[in-house]
């Protein structure tokens, strides 16, 4: 399931403004890769280029290559809808479909794939909710609205919805920034389990979180407002947080910057 992502010479634009410039990096399967950096450094933009969500923003364009196990996601033959089906995403704020039940939220992606046999759906819904560590809390109220859960439960519901279609990569855009510490801990534990089966990329503003959950950390920065964001360095999380190679990284993680 898990696949390797290789980014080379990637630029992303909003209209004429270049948001990120010349990003080249590799994201390894069955690992958690964290993107950290100050606000506006383009880490969320980069994340959104990986499942072609960036181009849905008005004026959003991309130049360069993103290879998923050898296939260029931006190749002429590639359908962006198909890309989004293989690369799941979890957003900053929990966003379950407000008109759907818990069950239907998890089954939404499967129904898009045309799988509608009830017994099959039942299995996947249970497996995905179990995978998202939510099954025990909601198994008796699957027909209740997903938006009636607590914030942390909603976010785990969104993770269940994303993994129900068995994506090859899971992208997480500050998945805990709207959650309390207990729910954050639950999600972080979940990430540790999920990385056994998925390639995970997580954007976070919380450096302790990056240190706790990730295997590899990439640090991005901007030199000036209006300048594009750039990759400063990428290394084992341990090394980044104890002995980074770049002065800029050290300044940032020790709080002497931004």
């Amino acid at each position: 399931m898990a696949k390797r992502i290789e980014i080379s010479g990637l630029d992303a634009f909003y209209g004429r403004t270049r948001a990120i410039a010349d990003i080249s990096m590799a994201v390894e399967p069955r690992q958690v890769t964290a993107f950290i950096g100050p606000s506006g450094c383009g880490k969320s933009t980069l994340l959104r280029t990986l499942n072609r969500m960036h181009e849905l923003t008005p004026g959003g364009t991309v130049e360069g290559k993103v290879m998923l196990d050898g296939t260029d996601l931006y190749g002429a033959q590639v359908d962006p809808v198909a890309v989004r089906r293989t690369i799941g995403m979890v957003f900053q704020r929990p966003n379950p479909f407000p008109t759907m039940s818990i069950y239907d939220n998890v089954a939404a992606g499967l129904r898009l794939l045309g799988r509608t046999r009830r017994s099959q759906l039942d299995d996947v819904v249970e497996r995905s909710l179990t995978g998202a560590n939510l099954w025990n809390e909601v198994k008796d109220r699957l027909d209740k609205p997903g938006a009636g859960l607590s914030g942390g439960q909603q976010q785990r519901l969104c993770i269940a919805r994303a993994i129900a279609v068995q994506p090859q990569v899971l992208l997480m855009d500050e998945p805990c920034s709207a959650l309390d510490p207990i729910s954050t801990l639950a999600i972080e534990d979940l990430i540790a389990t999920l990385k056994e089966s998925y390639t995970i990329v997580i954007v976070t503003h919380n450096m302790q979180q990056a240190a706790r959950v990730s295997d590899v950390t990439a640090f991005f920065t901007i030199t000036d407002a209006g300048e594009p964001g750039r990759l400063v360095e990428m290394d084992d999380t341990n090394k980044i947080f104890t002995n980074p190679s770049e002065k800029g990284t050290e300044d940032y993680i020790t709080g002497r910057f931004g």
Partner: peptide, 18 residues
Amino acid sequence: VPKANEEAALALGATRWE
């Protein structure tokens, strides 16, 4: 309609009509 809900659907691999 909240943008977040539309993005959730699109990120699941929904076409515009879906």
